[in-house]
């Protein structure tokens, strides 16, 4: 801070952190930033040592209001349990021209369906996804893992200990969701209605395929995901 003696306002610091961040920032993280800055830098930063959650939340609201009032094509959105600075979608067409991204690549319907099943049913095994879709999903799962939209969350206690899949932070960011619970009809879709132990459903047959190759890939991507998340948290 070379601007001699100029002490920035709380909202200015919050705005700067949000601008510089590579991932949504939570209120808790911002509070932590103020405390750590006070410890490590001292000086004027020490003045913010006592900043709490309410003040940070209020500062975010100020930034939000100021951006809206200024009308400069930027806004604050609540995404993936945090806040992010993003451009106004109304200005999207021009940004797309600038970035030369005229036809944004989107996920295919089968990929979106698979994601929807995972989002609502997580943690969920491949066999369970296939039982709903009625068709194999290995390739799609592999792609979704590569895109870090899903991750392996663990292993089921079922025979063969199949992998369990769940959605990631990136999933929330990609769709601009704050929480999984923001998806419509979560309560209805989350639990399997009328637990019929699929005796001859085609899910049972598909489940017998050894998930080895998918698992190997899954493990790799999961590690990457963890790594990516580690960066976010750190």
């Amino acid at each position: 801070m070379s601007e001699a003696g100029a002490i920035p306002e709380l909202k200015a610091i919050v705005g700067a952190v949000l601008f510089a961040s590579r991932a949504p920032v939570t209120v808790d993280r911002l509070v932590q930033v103020f405390h750590q800055a006070a410890e490590r830098i001292g000086g004027i930063a020490a003045g913010f040592a006592q900043v709490g959650r309410e003040e940070v939340a209020a500062a975010i609201e100020q930034v939000r209001a100021d951006l809206a009032a200024a009308g400069i094509g930027l806004r604050i959105a609540e995404v993936a349990h945090g806040y992010r600075l993003e451009s106004d979608p109304a200005c999207g067409p021009w940004v797309r021209v600038h970035l030369d991204r005229m036809r944004p690549q989107r996920l295919s319907p089968p990929a979106l369906e698979t994601l929807a099943i995972i989002a609502y049913r997580q943690p969920v095994t491949r066999a369970e996804i296939e039982a709903v879709r009625g068709v194999a999903v290995d390739q799609i799962l592999r792609n979704l893992l590569d895109l870090q939209l899903i991750r392996v969350t663990g292993r089921s206690d079922l025979p063969g200990r199949p992998w369990l899949f769940g959605t990631t932070q990136r999933f929330l960011e990609h769709f601009g969701l704050n929480r999984i619970e923001d998806l419509p009809g979560v309560d209805e879709l989350r639990r399997r209605e009328a637990q019929v132990a699929a005796p001859d459903g085609c899910g049972a047959g598909l489940a017998e395929k050894p998930p080895a190759e998918v698992a190997a890939l899954a493990a790799g991507s999961a590690a990457e995901t963890r790594e990516a998340m580690g960066h976010d948290a750190g």
């Binding site: 601008f19 510089a20 961040s21 590579r22 991932a23 949504p24 959105a77 992010r84 600075l85 993003e86 451009s87 979608p89 109304a90 200005c91 999207g92 067409p93 940004v95 797309r96 970035l99 944004p104 989107r106 996920l107 319907p109 979106l112 369906e113 994601l115 929807a116 989002a119 609502y120 960011e173 990609h174 769709f175 601009g176 969701l177 998806l183 419509p184 009809g185 879709l189």
Partner: peptide, 19 residues
């Protein structure tokens, strides 16, 4: 539900971040 995700994705394709 997938169609809903598609709508969200479409809306997000006009939103840009530094992320």
């Amino acid at each position: 539900a997938a169609r809903f995700l598609e709508q969200l994705e479409r809306r997000q394709s006009d939103v840009f971040t530094r992320h």
